[in-house]
Amino acid sequence: MVHVFQYKERYYIFDTGSSSLHECDEKAALLLRKKLGEDVDISSVSEAERREYEEDFAQLEKDGLLFKEETKVYPAKSDEVKALCLHICHDCNLRCKYCFADEGAYHSAREFMSLETAKRAIDFLIENSGNRKILETDFFGGEPLMNFDVVKQTVYYAKERAAAKGKKFLFTLTTNGLLLKDDIAQFLNEEMENVVLSLDGRKEVHDAVRKTANGKGSFDLVIDNIKNFVKIRGDKHYYVRGTFTKKNTDFAKDVLFIADNGFDSISMEPVVTDIEDLAITKEELPAIFKEYDALCDEYLKRYAEGKGFHFFHFNVDLEGGPCLAKRVSACGAGNEYFSVVPNGDIYPCHQFAGDPAFKMGSVYEGKLDEKIRKQFKESCLFTRKKCDGCFAKFICSGGCSANNYHFNGDINDPYEITCAMMRKRTENAMHILAEKKRLSQNEER
């Protein structure tokens, strides 16, 4: 399919079959939309211009960059496990209102993972990773730093086991920052390939939802820890990761607040919750779209001034990104990625943790429920029928299985609200890609 869209005074054509992005003028966009069956007035385009544009369209089509037929080849998925999310601690020292993990407890008892269970999880990953050399483990919670000693010992154990097998681990950890200081910060900086630091932006926004157990805001308790950590981080990976809700649909201000505080790697996610006064509904979408545009403009302005920052969802690589086989494979949860909860039970991913219907086994048994695994293994872009007519399908690969299930009752039934935001961010990201190229070409002249 072909998607024609406009960003302010720019016009773009995205060909989904070839994953090619083109820039054109208003008349070309009009003609193409007419060609696609839209009811548009093309009287402003002269006959001579029309012939010229048609020649351009024909050349692009001949080059396989326009109206290219989309692949319908179902992906061949391997049984190799790539990554585990270790719920090292089902407890938390904060009580964030929107936490999908039920304030750390995942709808069960507050519990810490033992070192023995963590070691069994590492063994499970190594034993099920086939010929794969690089393995990934994310320390998650709850707040994983409440069980820091097990994090540390697990890292040492995994490195030792991997070295003996000719493999290598990449570790990541997500923290709210409360305990991120001194030896802990030093260890994470040395051992973690990526560290995700939770901060929602402006103090009043952060404090309204991210509260301590006694109900006080946590901004002042974490901001210096996070700043100090990023200072020692140097050029190693980190993300300052925020959540926005219905209450701060002006989240661009929060992203820019984070950037203004010296953080240059930022992700800001729409909340996943069914709490009515926080959940995003279709009523908020126009304001959210406007906000993504405002963020896009400021992002480019700062980039042009040499003061740019990295925003996770504006990063779409059409040239060197994933191959087509990967783009149609869906997210990998339940087949190549699993989460392990403190007692060793295995779930398709962190967002399914604690749901008995999705318990796939235990690291102590070492085998997986093949019926559930088959369900996830067979799920791909083509089993998500709603995606057929969507231009962003090869970017998002059918969305989040957990969101689909929690909102629509089926991992193959994409959730419309997140789809709408995904499409918007994709258009912004494509505009950014074009503008960055334009800027670098201008610099070369």
């Binding site: 773009y12 054509i13 070839s18 994953s19 090619s20 992005l21 083109h22 820039e23 054109c24 003028d25 008349k27 070309a28 010229e52 544009y53 020649e55 351009d56 369209f57 050349q59 692009l60 960059l65 992906p75 061949a76 391997s78 190799e80 794969r132 690089i134 059409l318 040239e319 060197g320 990104g321 994933p322 191959c323 087509l324 086989a325 990967k326 494509m430 890609l433 074009a434 190229k437």
Partner: peptide, 16 residues
């Protein structure tokens, strides 16, 4: 081909 400019894939191994 001067009105339409191509802005941006390069020419399943599972290494990702």
């Amino acid at each position: 081909m001067n009105k339409i400019k191509t802005v941006a894939p390069a020419d399943g191994c599972g290494e990702c």
